[in-house]
Design a protein around this nucleic acid. Structure first.
Lengths: 338, 338
DNA sequence: AATGTTATAGAATACGTATTCGAAACAATT
DNA sequence: AATTGTTTCGAATACGTATTCTATAACATT
């Protein structure tokens, strides 16, 4: 038995319309009647039904957040910020987890839209997605987080991934490394692709050859990356360093090194990407490229809200690219000479 | 311009009611007209409006998930499972993050209910909450995850926390430790409180005294736990081991030990609680009590769905308590003798 | 051909709220 | 007291769907 505005109207002895007006802080209602209504609301502990409300206002005060893997600390930490800021602004957020599957993403968008969310933040979207373009052209409020689609000018907030990769490679080369293995991850994402480009061109800049056998471009799977690294570290011409485009994958590399009894950083240097909070731990101490989640997440949410509430001209869509920062800890050093 | 059933009705040359019937797979509609309708739906790419649908069916196909801190891997990994299973069953999930604040939790419940979610999973709720009791009595579908409320028989899925703590202490005592510091966390949660009881009674069982100066019962804050541990490790009668009721807090302890140049496990043994995935990493190798998130999360979701869909008598409410398991890795050993 | 029976479609209504618009009550001005 | 202006309130309607119930069409049976 859910209470409705009619119940309130009855006990306050006013019309339903009046109740609705005080609920929405209308100006044209006398103080005395407003009091009658608020008293009734108080007494019956009434809360308006958001569904019915959405029905007529065409607003749900709900956002969609689509991520590839919520258990990945980068996404989890980003989600926390986004949820927090959204709550401050009066929005709830529905999280969809795609497991990095394009079809799941397609479905997630579909159901979020049919649920009439007011806007969507998408991370982990293929750089070639056509769907987003259409949504964007339809004027649906959407912002890409940590991803971007080729040939599309949707709002997006990303790191300068290219630059980030260059920073990492420069650091390793400066230390004296000539052979830098690369855990690229799936290059269908523009972010990872750009990191790949950064890696490639930084190598070129330093006059180093790119060895395809030392590049992993499969999915972000702990086990697979572990196996790849283990094999590579068992080969005669094993690399002196690894650059992984995710801290989690860097940990997989470190795990493999430990299994092979190769010590870090004496015998192997490792650089990650993300700076997830655990990477700072004394027992990990991972050298990594910082993603600036806090800034990125906050900017993405702000942009989305302003698109929804039309606080700024929606004509201009921004493509923010934040500056990465290399955080040197203890997994990198000059290469081991025998 | 959102399409409605009326648009479909018009192009299919039938009534709105008929369209609705084919959408819901009614029996009484001729094959030929069904075809007309599905064709029209196909052609216009129509998707029904969930809000309007919820309005009349009184179902939103949306669940609420309230967590204390989504960036905590335990919750993130649990959330992933819950979201995945929910999606399989056709539900989306709204995540609320309370930052372990009771008022935020209160508000989260409020807005979730006003959004008419079909059910709620709550973790991180004080063992004394009155709110849940009322919800439960009202018959609102709700299940507690990794938490329980005193004197309430709401459905819940937890680990046998008491037993888990006993396992940890037994392990340390078996190794020869006599002085086991304890990072309890906030004992307002029944889970942490039960771990505290387990710790206390296990000590007693072994004839060891409980030293209050060696017990931390503040909030789960990395920095605070770090400071507490650092200080304790600097004192003359420093403990030979730590038992932390969360892997994350165990990491804080390890960090503090590293700063004090105390080696683990030679000079200090550490046991955690949760078995978050990173704890298995070679560079962490944390001995810990496994929470069995996968089972717990799946059971919690299943129970919630069955409450919502009334697949079983809702009279019986279950309080599941899973068996913990100690996972011994490399942060524990016999105490150091000088 | 008439009647009975069944399969099918549509008109009407409900869900709970926001909002417009006209009416009524009241205040202010002459 | 009459007029005008101003508040304040409520009746009516819309939002997009599901569902009941009635009407009709189609068909079968005699």
């Amino acid at each position: 038995m859910r209470l409705t505005v009619h119940d309130i109207a009855r006990v306050a002895n006013v019309s339903q319309a009046t109740v609705s007006k005080v609920l929405n802080n209308y100006s044209g209602v006398k103080e005395s009647t407003r009091k009658k209504v608020t008293d009734a609301i108080e007494e019956l502990k009434f809360t308006p039904d958001s569904v019915a409300r959405s029905m007529v206002t065409n607003k749900t005060n709900t956002l969609g957040l689509i991520v590839g893997d919520i258990s990945n600390p980068f996404f989890a930490e980003s989600a926390k910020i986004i949820i927090g800021k959204a709550q401050e602004k009066g929005y709830d957020v529905i999280i969809s987890n795609t497991d990095h599957d394009d079809e799941n993403l397609e479905n997630a968008i579909q159901t979020l839209i049919s649920k009439r969310v007011d806007g969507i933040i998408i991370s982990s979207i293929s750089r070639s997605s056509m769907r987003i373009k259409k949504l964007h052209e339809n004027g649906f409020p959407i912002v890409l987080y940590n991803s971007r689609v080729e040939g599309d000018s949707s709002n997006s907030v990303v790191l300068d991934n290219y630059r980030g990769a260059v920073l990492a490679v420069d650091h390793l080369v400066d230390l004296g490394h000539q052979d830098i293995a690369f855990i690229a991850g799936p290059t269908k994402y523009l972010t990872t692709y750009e990191r790949y480009l950064g890696y490639r061109e930084a190598l070129e800049k330093h006059g180093l050859d790119l060895n395809n056998a030392h590049v992993y471009d499969g999915e972000y799977d702990y086990r697979k990356v572990y196996d790849f690294s283990y094999n590579l570290l068992s080969s005669p011409d094993r690399p002196t360093s690894f650059f992984a485009t995710s801290d989690q994958m860097a940990l997989a590399v470190m795990d493999a090194a430990a299994s092979r009894k190769i010590s870090i950083p004496q015998e192997l240097s490792v650089v990650g990407f993300d700076n997830m909070s655990i990477s700072a731990n004394a027992y990990i101490g991972l050298t990594t490229v910082s993603q600036q989640k806090e800034n990125m997440a906050e900017l993405a949410l702000k942009k989305l809200i302003s698109l929804i509430e039309k606080t700024e001209s929606d004509a201009i869509s921004i493509q923010l690219s934040l500056k990465p920062e290399l955080i040197v800890r203890k997994t990198t050093s000059t290469p081991y000479k025998e």
